[in-house]
Design a protein around this nucleic acid. Sequence first.
DNA 1: GACAGATTGTTGAATTAATCTACTATATAT
DNA 2: ATATATAGTAGATTAATTCAACAATCTGTC
Lengths: 165, 165
Amino acid sequence: MTQSGRKQPGHQGPETGIQLGRLDEFIGFRLRRIQNQLSRDFAAATADRNLRSGLFSSLAIIAANPGISQNELSGAVGLDKSITVQIVDELEKRQLAVRKRSQTDRRRHALFATDAGQTYLDELFDIMARTEDIVLHQLSRAELGLLRELLDRMYQAFDQKGIPL
Amino acid sequence: MTQSGRKQPGHQGPETGIQLGRLDEFIGFRLRRIQNQLSRDFAAATADRNLRSGLFSSLAIIAANPGISQNELSGAVGLDKSITVQIVDELEKRQLAVRKRSQTDRRRHALFATDAGQTYLDELFDIMARTEDIVLHQLSRAELGLLRELLDRMYQAFDQKGIPL
DNA sequence: GACAGATTGTTGAATTAATCTACTATATAT
DNA sequence: ATATATAGTAGATTAATTCAACAATCTGTC
């Protein structure tokens, strides 16, 4: 259960006279503080929905990859497969997604989003978009494109070195 | 206790043929995936050190703000004050920081990093720097500066709207 | 075709983290 | 002096994560 009001501790907003010291050197830190605030805002905006942690991204990945297996989903979302089981259980209970036994490999569960799931997902995407808007309006369209590109380039770095799973 | 090997599930590295769908539109998603991988890598690199979750950033903030109160620390790091108590307890037990009663307001505990704490912190910063290196080498110096600037601009957006605490 | 070994999904136990409430001591304002 | 607010602490509750064990099924090898 998430709380509804704006009562969370919250990352310190800027302008509080707190020194960051060497922490300020790291982009990881900058990424985290923004990302934390964004997910707090998103959580607040979806507080009524009883959204457990990996559910949104799991549903999104399922919708974008019809027939994906739970194992692949785990890898894509970055969750342990035992957590994925729980999430898919809940998605099914809420009728947002379904498991179908794969005919070619009967160990696998092929996952599909239902229509209701797709609708639900679109709502969440809209909330997410509104949440990000606050932050995105600080950037011009060109800057946003550039940011995207830089972030992607950074992410690809993880490709080079040995990546788990 | 964190595990030492590279055994974690891990965010899916790029290049796995998984479609992201609309998830791909959001910078929050891009921020998170990089940040997740970075903290995984950092956790792996410090697995021997028994680092509980907010400890590193708390110590960093204390070192950069000698005499800061626990409450201010909570706000700066984004943790509930009851968690901060635990963290400061551990910092003291490990002799990385000390509490001193404020003379002017005897409710407050003024926090200070010890020399050992500062040394420890520097080690962590170095590990952090090495962790980020992998990702940072994808960017030119100019791009890195720009990225920093864009991220800061984004973070400041949270200033405008009402920020919790 | 049978066996060994790997993989998928599942369960439950154990650990850890986050949240919330209530309480004590001290401070500030009236 | 009294009321109200704040800093720090403790404990209970809940959620999230990790880990190990297991059954079913597949794959390759003989």
